[in-house]
């Protein structure tokens, strides 16, 4: 094995996968992955972001040997997950999106069950269970049934169950969806500790603040990778100048600015509107005049740095308008 190969823990090239989905009476082919290429390095925290149906879950399932790709090559820890699944099972921890554990089993019973089926050596069992309970801060709840835990605690228990065999690679499919920000923060602190211990983590998330904590991020869309790099690199791919207009009437301001054709995009936030534009000096003047004319007040107009979310939303918006007009926004129908 060359050193370069040892460096790469997941290598996927030209992966394709098509599902046949029933739609009304007809069957429709849905391409979950189209010629998907990705390499994840050992020790990395790698984030997958992208809209619903981008192929993230399909990709993760292929890595775990749960799905067969139609074509393409994939290697996980140097093995083919399809034909050599038994060689990597002990080294992978996988937490599926829907995974909700056995609700009627206690925290301890859930952990014990996974200790059993991963065949953790007898002498190590109680030490490992104790360590995980401590690590996930679930110790005081070890006798509580999983169904009675809060959302954040359930996710930590699920993670603990996937860590019981000390895997080298963790694959987590939207582990924090529906979890409150405090619990999410704690969950990611745990992931950070794991990475310190040398575990490679591949994680998908709908939260941009989580994606920003990854070493590298791949932005996926319709089964392909749209952008790949560190969060900063991706943020840097924003192709225009970004300007934020702070106002108490963001909804009205956004509706008004959408009618200006020189703007590349207009996004509504809670207390401001972001617009993508070129040549800020002239265009900001146009914006000011337009808003003044309509009598909309604003506190400031600042040019700013696009962040990961700005870029993500911008790229998605371009694509969804270009490739799937029927999925485009329905904003115009009720703009004033």
């Amino acid at each position: 094995m060359t050193s370069q190969m040892a460096d790469v823990i997941i290598r996927a090239s030209a992966l394709s996968k098509t599902y046949s989905v029933k739609e009304g009476r007809a069957r429709k082919q849905v391409q979950a992955l189209r010629s998907f290429d990705l390499e994840v390095k050992t020790g990395e925290m790698f984030g997958l972001i992208g809209p619903d149906g981008a192929g993230k879950t399909t990709f993760m399932r292929i890595l775990c040997g749960l799905l067969l790709p139609d074509s393409g090559q994939v290697a996980v820890l140097g093995f083919d997950p399809v034909t050599q699944q038994h060689k990597i099972k002990q080294d992978i921890g996988y937490m599926p999106q829907r995974f909700s554990l056995y609700q009627d089993l206690t925290v301890e019973e859930n952990l014990n069950f996974f200790t059993d089926i991963f065949q953790v050596p007898r002498q190590e069992r109680s030490a490992r269970t104790q360590r995980l309970l401590e690590f996930s801060r679930l110790g005081p709840f070890s006798k509580r049934r999983a169904g009675a835990l809060s959302g954040g605690m359930k996710q930590k228990l699920a993670l603990s169950c996937t860590l019981i065999h000390t895997p080298k690679l963790l694959i987590l499919d939207e582990p924090t969806t529906g979890v409150d920000p405090v619990s999410r923060g704690e969950f990611w602190d745990i992931l950070g500790e794991l990475q310190q211990q040398g575990v490679t983590i591949l994680v998908s998330t709908p939260y941009m603040d989580e994606a920003a904590r990854c070493d590298r991020v791949a932005l996926t869309y319709a089964g392909q990778i749209l952008a790949l790099g560190t969060p900063d690199q991706i943020a840097g791919q924003f192709p225009h100048q970004l300007v934020r207009i702070f106002t108490r009437q963001p909804y009205d301001v956004a509706a008004a600015l959408r009618q200006l054709e020189i703007l590349h995009s207009v996004e509504l936030y809670g207390d401001h509107v972001t617009v993508a534009l070129d040549d800020p000096v002239t265009v900001v003047e146009i914006i000011r005049k337009n808003l003044d004319k309509r009598g909309y007040s604003y506190t400031s107009i600042d040019s700013g740095q696009a962040d990961l979310e700005d870029t993500f939303v911008y790229l998605m918006r371009q694509l969804s308008q270009a490739t799937q007009p029927e999925l485009g926004n329905d904003l115009d129908s009720h703009a004033k």
Partner: peptide, 24 residues
């Protein structure tokens, strides 16, 4: 009650604009 769970960022944005339209 958590109307946007599991919905992607673009859809969430569209949803919120709809919500503001209703509020207006």
């Amino acid at each position: 009650d958590e109307p946007t769970g599991g919905v992607d960022p673009i859809m969430r944005r569209n949803f919120w604009e709809t919500i503001h339209g209703l509020a207006a």
